[in-house]
Design a protein around this nucleic acid. Sequence first.
DNA 1: GCTATTTCGTCATGCCGGTTTACAAATTAG
DNA 2: CTAATTTGTAAACCGGCATGACGAAATAGC
Lengths: 402, 402
Amino acid sequence: MTAPLHEARPSGPGRALPDTQQGMRRRNLARVLHTVRAQGPLSRAAVASRIGLTRAAVSTLVDELIRSGLLEELGPERPGRVGRPGSALAVSGRGPAGIGAEVGVDHLAVCAVDLRGTTRARAIRQGANRDRSPQPVLAELTELIRQVVAEAEGEGLWPAGLAVAVPGLVARDGRTVVRAPNLGWHDTDLGTLLPAGLPLTVDNEANFGALAELWLGEDTPRDFLHVSAEIGIGAAVVVDGGLLRGTRGFAGELGHVPVRPDGPECACGGRGCLEQYAGEEAVLRAAGLEPGEDRVGLLAGRAAQGDENVRRALRDAGTALGVALTGAVNLLDPESVVLGGELSGLAPWLLPSLRDELARRTAGPVCPVTVSPLGPEGPLLGAAHSVVRAVLDDPAAVAGQA
Amino acid sequence: MTAPLHEARPSGPGRALPDTQQGMRRRNLARVLHTVRAQGPLSRAAVASRIGLTRAAVSTLVDELIRSGLLEELGPERPGRVGRPGSALAVSGRGPAGIGAEVGVDHLAVCAVDLRGTTRARAIRQGANRDRSPQPVLAELTELIRQVVAEAEGEGLWPAGLAVAVPGLVARDGRTVVRAPNLGWHDTDLGTLLPAGLPLTVDNEANFGALAELWLGEDTPRDFLHVSAEIGIGAAVVVDGGLLRGTRGFAGELGHVPVRPDGPECACGGRGCLEQYAGEEAVLRAAGLEPGEDRVGLLAGRAAQGDENVRRALRDAGTALGVALTGAVNLLDPESVVLGGELSGLAPWLLPSLRDELARRTAGPVCPVTVSPLGPEGPLLGAAHSVVRAVLDDPAAVAGQA
DNA sequence: GCTATTTCGTCATGCCGGTTTACAAATTAG
DNA sequence: CTAATTTGTAAACCGGCATGACGAAATAGC
């Protein structure tokens, strides 16, 4: 009764699972694993004091995790303090691995990440995928996946799942690409076209990018806005360490936030949407360039060379982004805004005007705008880590699968 | 591993409390109580099958809840099916009560709500509070609270907590009013000015209104946007059955979402904020009226009489709201938008243009906009129910206090 | 160097909480 | 009236964490 009363998250029926002793055990296994992973090598006693269980209980949990191959014993700690030194525990580098894959407009990429978060294998293949049909593209991707899985297995890892990032809208089933305009795909069930036998998740590139930022960023808060421009302009809203997906899974459509209500018409039916000012096509047009292959690279290159038209176009785009983000920040009060994905490459020319606009329109402290250090790597890493995360969240589920 | 992998909410360190057997018991007590309250009179067997525990376990849980005075046995059910009829259980009408209070600009109100959700006592006092100092106002409120508590106690209830709705910003401590422009209060700690001995929570009127909508609305979804106009224009964002508060507690500032980036200057430093078009003052000005006491009532009255200036002003405000909500809907993909609080009285003249604007700017299915049936009652009810909710969420905490 | 102290990991034991099994009670179906 | 079905409860069981005690391995003090 001391905490704020109406943090209603745990209200209602609460968790769906019955609160039984087995569930308790599973959650405590997860707590131990998470703690060891996050806080470096730790003794059993240290884990116990951190998660509030007794040393005896932690001992049995650790035993189980070691037997499952998720934790390993590094041996006695070097003692600095009085008392018997503990035996250091660390997450295993030879257990399950998360396989992440990315279908980009002009590349395919796959990587394997172990429980420690280290990337242990990767494969990239350049080549334009725009308007190629899904079958051949996914056949190539499958080949890359096989390579990466083989390489990971060579190091004693086994694949715990596959997560695929695509530049498009994904149905809530987590398998079907509803619409990927830059690929020309629609209503494609990737489940039938990718290697079977691995648990599969498909999601939007921007979502995985935001999760990568959340999980891998240095001081990333638990509430932030992750803006990227892969298809149109997307934002992922991270609230309380989780993705806000929306009822239909369409949350984060920053590109269609009205910036000037009487502006040019947009494909969405509206007028003056952000996309009309800061979308790829709009910026290219404003800069007087033709839409080509590597459009973001082209813009970045010209801007770096000092092309004043390009720079002006990007400045204006930054201003429009600032207007749209003012609305978003007012609505969500995030701790920060992060520019990620391909957008991070254009940040030097977008940021000044964006920050100006945001500051001008804000009373009090201005929401900080930063650039993701992961850059275009985000989505791929986020995908792989989402699999790892699932293992950490419920170690018991994968226990016997090695 | 079958559920979507990156619903990361339960990720990270997870709940802060150690997952011990006592915690399990407490959560199961809550599950039983919630189930009985939500699904009407229910037998022990019915509860057991719904929450996934055995009849035996539910029996002991129910015993404990009955001993605490939170549940009561209604006697044997009328049998329609084969087999021994169960004994109906219902939440008690004589246990703890939630006391809700509201400090309005021109009224004070208090009510008591029992576990069943029934309002059992209430007191209202009209009178302008604008620019009165906190002490006398809260002394009056304290008197009303005493009346209501006495009345509730006469019916066998005991107060489990007090929740106060105020038209202003409240600090994250849940006690201090940072700024309430319409009252002229700032940095006022209500904890020292209200009856001690009761657990106290203070929150924004709009937040409580949204929670009332969530808990009491007929088919209210778990994800929606609740718009109200008490101080400026506020929106409460409800995500997954919980309030999105933001890092600084400032989330939902719909009033300062830019509608026309080059519009008139706003006190926030920006230009063309929604408040400049749909705020109380702006609408009164556009309608050619002087700011007086009951401003919303004035507008509604004139509009109902057919005053064309007022109607036009409200139509235009609806259009501006539509633009701002388009942005919000694109960002959050809520299941619906609800107009609540004082705003619900103006809905007939706001809604048509608002819906038009939203529909015009939306591709695909349009987010439905509805009017809260609770109207101006929302905040008061939400406050009282927030206390009830806290009891339902952790019955063990209040068990021995009767 | 020797002992006291501290801390770690692990037993054996106990308690707590949900499950299983069994059974009496109360109803409908035939 | 009997068989079948469902409810609620009691007894025995089991799984899981806590408690308390112990040996092991380090430091601190003499």
